[in-house]
Amino acid sequence: MEPAHKELLRRHQLELSGQLLVSDTIVPFLYQENILTDAQVQEIESQPTDRQKTLKLLQLLPGRGPRAFPALLRALDDFSWVRDKLVLELQDAPGATGETAADVWRPPDSVLQRVPSDRELSRLASRLGSEWEAVLLDLGLSAESLFRCRADHSLSSHGATLAALLQWRRAEGKKASVQRLLQSLQAADVHPSVLQDVLL
């Protein structure tokens, strides 16, 4: 999800939680569109009140990739006044064309061209959440390789992520650069600051 979309939802969190009823149409639609997982739907539905269900949904959505915000707008058919207000505010926002994730942090070329070390990949593995598989698929690892990494490290998501990152670096050699990592992080909607923390 783009920074502007995250900020918009954060700003309107309390207002939305008082206006939306997410259980009937919004959550099922986002599940159908593969924005929410089974576990996340259960997490939302286990909240005791409608307000808390909406707040939980708004808390989960920013981490669900670039399709999450457009899908949310489509899911708001029954709440068109809310959708129209969000769209209008987004268009009126200063610099609505805004900064992209790439503008936020741009390391020097000397850093971009180098191959990340074991230590850096380990630190990255500990910072990547549920997006790690999307990142590694974008880096070119096969679904079969990811499945093997998950199976070999079933008790540790850090271990599985690190194994997959090391496999990518071994396969790509000198082409396994920081720049390539940065591209895949952005493709999976992971903020570049995650990589910045790892490299500094």
Results as ranks from 00 to 15, higher is better:
58 L>I: 08
14 L>M: 04
43 E>G: 07
146 L>F: 11
119 R>E: 14
14 L>S: 05
60 L>I: 14
165 L>S: 10
18 G>M: 07
161 T>G: 02
50 D>W: 00
36 L>V: 01
154 S>E: 08
134 A>T: 15
39 A>N: 13
158 H>I: 14
60 L>N: 05
30 L>K: 07
40 Q>P: 07
149 C>T: 01
141 L>H: 12
38 D>M: 11
113 Q>C: 01
98 G>I: 00
119 R>F: 04
131 E>G: 09
12 H>W: 13
170 R>A: 13
15 E>W: 08
148 R>F: 12
17 S>P: 10
15 E>K: 01
105 W>S: 11
77 D>R: 11
84 D>T: 12
182 L>G: 06
192 P>A: 01
151 A>W: 03
13 Q>V: 02
6 K>G: 10
101 A>K: 05
18 G>S: 14
100 T>W: 14
196 Q>S: 12
17 S>D: 10
189 D>N: 10
24 D>N: 10
48 P>V: 03
46 S>I: 01
191 H>T: 04
19 Q>E: 10
116 P>S: 06
112 L>M: 14
168 W>F: 05
136 L>A: 00
118 D>Y: 14
95 G>A: 02
76 L>C: 07
149 C>S: 15
191 H>C: 06
29 F>E: 06
106 R>A: 05
111 V>C: 00
97 T>I: 13
38 D>T: 04
194 V>T: 14
146 L>W: 07
147 F>G: 11
131 E>R: 14
188 A>Y: 15
49 T>E: 04
184 S>C: 14
163 A>R: 06
33 E>C: 03
61 L>N: 04
16 L>D: 03
53 K>A: 02
197 D>E: 07
114 R>M: 09
190 V>G: 12
157 S>R: 15
190 V>D: 09
129 G>W: 01
172 E>V: 03
115 V>P: 06
171 A>Q: 15
197 D>G: 11
23 S>D: 10
86 L>K: 04
115 V>Q: 10
76 L>Y: 11
196 Q>W: 12
7 E>Q: 06
8 L>T: 08
120 E>V: 07
105 W>Y: 06
67 R>S: 03
64 R>I: 04
29 F>N: 02
77 D>T: 08
14 L>A: 11
61 L>H: 03
125 A>G: 09
128 L>C: 08
8 L>M: 11
17 S>A: 05
24 D>W: 09
110 S>Y: 06
10 R>E: 14
37 T>K: 12
12 H>Y: 11
179 Q>H: 04
190 V>S: 09
101 A>T: 00
152 D>R: 10
72 L>T: 01
187 A>Y: 06
163 A>H: 12
92 D>H: 09
174 K>Q: 13
143 A>N: 15
1 M>E: 09
5 H>S: 05
87 V>G: 00
180 R>Q: 15
133 E>G: 13
170 R>G: 09
127 R>L: 14
45 E>P: 04
12 H>E: 05
200 L>W: 07
118 D>G: 04
141 L>I: 04
